[in-house]
Deep mutational scan, measured.
Amino acid sequence: LTDEELVTMSVRELNQHLRGLSKEEIIQLKQRRRTLKNRGY
């Protein structure tokens, strides 16, 4: 997933992508998404 996709994707879509990932990967992705959102994309 690109940063842009992460930010513009709805939470529902995101959760579908996260299905099948490990807990660590999910946590990393969610942190990255929060960081991007805070940057004001």
Rank of each mutant, 00 (worst) to 15 (best):
N15T: 10
L6C: 00
R12T: 09
R34D: 07
R32Q: 02
H17G: 02
L29R: 01
L18W: 05
D3L: 04
E24F: 09
L6V: 03
L36G: 02
L21H: 06
R12F: 09
E4K: 10
S22T: 12
K37Q: 10
L36F: 01
I26P: 00
L18C: 10
Y41K: 12
N15E: 11
Y41M: 12
R34A: 11
R39A: 15
L18Y: 09
Q28I: 13
L6P: 00
L36Y: 02
K23V: 10
K37T: 05
D3N: 04
R19V: 10
E13P: 00
E25H: 07
L36R: 02
G20K: 09
H17A: 13
E4G: 06
Q28R: 15
R32G: 00
T8S: 14
E13A: 08
D3Y: 03
K30P: 00
L21D: 00
L18M: 14
R39F: 10
Q16T: 08
V11F: 09
S22V: 04
G40N: 09
E13H: 05
L18V: 07
L21Q: 04
K23I: 11
H17D: 00
S10W: 00
H17L: 14
K23D: 08
E24M: 11
K37S: 04
Y41G: 12
Q16L: 13
R12K: 13
E4W: 15
L14E: 01
N15H: 11
L18R: 01
R32C: 03
T8N: 14
E25I: 11
E24A: 12
H17Q: 05
K37Y: 06
D3G: 01
L6G: 00
Q16C: 15
L21Y: 07
G20S: 07
Y41E: 12
R32T: 00
M9A: 02
E4C: 14
R19W: 05
T2A: 04
R39Y: 09
R33M: 09
V11S: 09
V11K: 14
S22K: 07
D3K: 01
E5D: 09
D3V: 02
G40S: 08
D3F: 03
N15F: 12
T2Q: 03
G20F: 09
G40L: 15
K23G: 06
N15A: 12
K30E: 04
L18E: 01
R32I: 02
S22Q: 06
N15Y: 14
T2I: 02
M9H: 03
S10T: 13
E24S: 13
G20T: 08
K37G: 03
R39T: 11
G20A: 06
L14Q: 01
T8A: 13
Q16K: 14
T8Q: 13
L1G: 01
E4A: 10
N38V: 06
E25A: 11
R19K: 13
R32W: 03
S10R: 04
T2V: 02
I26H: 04
T8F: 08
S22G: 07
L36V: 03
R33D: 00
S10M: 03
I26L: 04
E13R: 07
L14P: 00
I27L: 11
L29W: 04
S10H: 04
G20R: 08
Q28L: 13
S22A: 07
S10D: 05
E13T: 06
L36P: 01
L1M: 06
L36H: 02
I27D: 09
L21K: 13
R34Y: 05
L29T: 06
L1V: 06
Q31R: 12
K30G: 03
E24I: 11
L21G: 01
G40A: 11
E5R: 09
Q28S: 11
V11N: 12
S22W: 01
R33Y: 15
D3Q: 02
N38K: 14
L14Y: 05
I26Y: 05
E4R: 10
K30M: 15
N38E: 14
T35E: 15
R12C: 14
K37I: 15
T35K: 14
L21W: 06
T35S: 12
R39N: 14
S10V: 02
R33K: 04
S22F: 03
R19T: 07
S10Q: 03
E25Y: 07
R12G: 07
E5C: 14
H17E: 03
S22R: 08
L29C: 05
S22N: 07
V11Q: 10
I27K: 13
K23C: 06
K23M: 11
L1D: 01
L14I: 05
K37F: 09
K23S: 08
E13Y: 03
R19Q: 10
Q28D: 08
I26W: 05
L6H: 00
V7M: 14
Q16G: 06
L29H: 03
R32P: 00
R19H: 07
L21R: 09
Q31F: 08
I26R: 15
L21V: 04
Q16M: 13
E4Q: 10
N38D: 11
Q16P: 03
K37H: 06
M9Y: 01
E5Y: 05
G20C: 06
N38T: 08
L6D: 01
G40C: 15
G40H: 13
I27N: 09
E25P: 00
E13L: 06
L21P: 00
R19P: 03
Q28P: 02
E13D: 07
Q16N: 12
S10A: 04
R19C: 05
R34I: 08
G20P: 03
S22L: 05
I26K: 14
R12V: 08
R39G: 13
G40T: 07
I27C: 12
Q28F: 13
E25L: 13
V11H: 11
K30H: 08
E5W: 05
I27S: 09
K23W: 09
Q28G: 08
E4S: 08
T2D: 04
R34L: 07
R39M: 15
V11I: 14
Q31W: 08
D3C: 05
E5V: 07
N15V: 13
